[in-house]
Amino acid sequence: MLQQKRRIIMARLSIADLQNVRDENKATFTLRKGEYKAKIVVHMGTCGIAAGARSVMTVLMDEIALSGRNDIVVKTSGCGGLCAREPMAVIELKDQTPVIYGDLNEEKMSEIFREHIIGGKPVEKYAMALGGETII
């Protein structure tokens, strides 16, 4: 992806190329302007981190990179108050009710990413509840 970007920038641009540049860099501005299709909030309180939220986050980031999607936003939040079920994450697709997942680990995260975010179907077996929470 990076290779391709360089090629376009170094060469003289045509009007079509401008659009390509726009598409390629969309992820950056999805993030900065808040125009996303999916939002994932990983709980990163002390309890979450102790339970392994860090590695869940790493897996998630890797999955996003692999998928090449540029309209996904990942946020962190503090302790959700349900420390026993950490690591937890909330996944919200645009215009849909957020789903809260608990007791996550790396494999579960990968699966949820593929099924829910890419596939659009919540993974019921890991889901704890529907409904969001106020985050920053």
């Binding site: 992820a27 993030l31 900065r32 890797d62 996003i64 990179a65 936003v73 990942v74």
Partner: peptide
């Protein structure tokens, strides 16, 4: 591979 960036 470039990892995705979650926060700027």
């Amino acid at each position: 591979m470039e990892t995705a960036v979650r926060t700027h």
